[in-house]
Amino acid sequence: MSKQNQIPEVDIVVDEKAGVIREVKDERKLRSKSGHERRVNTAIYVILVLMSVIWLAPFVFLVFQSFRSYALESGGMVNYLLPKTWSLDNYRWLLSGESNFIRWYGNTLFIAIFCAAIQTVMVLSVSYALSRLRFKGRKLIMNTVLVLGLFPGFLTMITLYFLLKQLGLTQSGAIPGLILIYCASSGMGYYISKGYFDTIPKSLDESARIDGATRFQVFKKIIMPLAKPIVIYTVLMAFMAPWGDYVFASYVAFGSEPNYNVAVGLYRWVNVNDYQGYFTRFCAGGVLVAVPITILFMCLQKYYVEGVTGGAVKG
């Protein structure tokens, strides 16, 4: 690049004097800057690669250890990473029905599907009402939710437990009980979707109203089709949350093993039971939980990013 670049520079120097000399200097500065730039970029690449390694390492390790042979090696924690004998022992054990793992998985899936359906309806109704409709008590509702949000969630755990117990929805009824708890107050999480509705121009509603549409028709025929991204975001969030809930699930299902969700079951393997015997099984279970969810999440990543960024900007 140097030769080709230098020729016009020389030409310019010959043609015009004072101003052009500075231009040559600038060119040189620019070139040195691009050297600097390259160094900065290299440094950034190094950092990014390092970060990627750190961020992915636990998952790669998790997968490695899930393939360690239970029968020939050890099911506990060992001081090396790569299994000496690769095998599917742990997966086979999980899926053989010897443990309650399949049951737990089914429970969680069941809860997640129901929550995704019910919560989405709740959240969208609340956020639509608060964003588009003006009525008495609207501000009061928003302020109440704000204040309620400042109370720690577990404060009410005992009360909820006894409420559910009254309804017969603990222990053996834990699954419907959990669905009820997750969904009942889900309307409070309206911020992000309300923020989204706020960005849809109001003129759309108004013109439809002038044409004689009722508010319900506006909601169904005009806003909903436009709100597809936020609907997907809400469904995704509602579906993913039950997979990670340990606290309420363990409290509500306390002592009734067939009614655990995966989080409770696996947590108890490593933290309550003898974890040296269950560690690789925990890893395998973790992989079985994480892989489908990660794939789902990655497919819908676009909507997630949209929701999260939107939510942060609008508070």
């Binding site: 993913m240 989080a263 947590y267 939980v289 994480a290 969810i293």
Partner: peptide
Amino acid sequence: AIPQFVSLL
């Protein structure tokens, strides 16, 4: 994407 109870545990 990965549930926290898997990754954090």
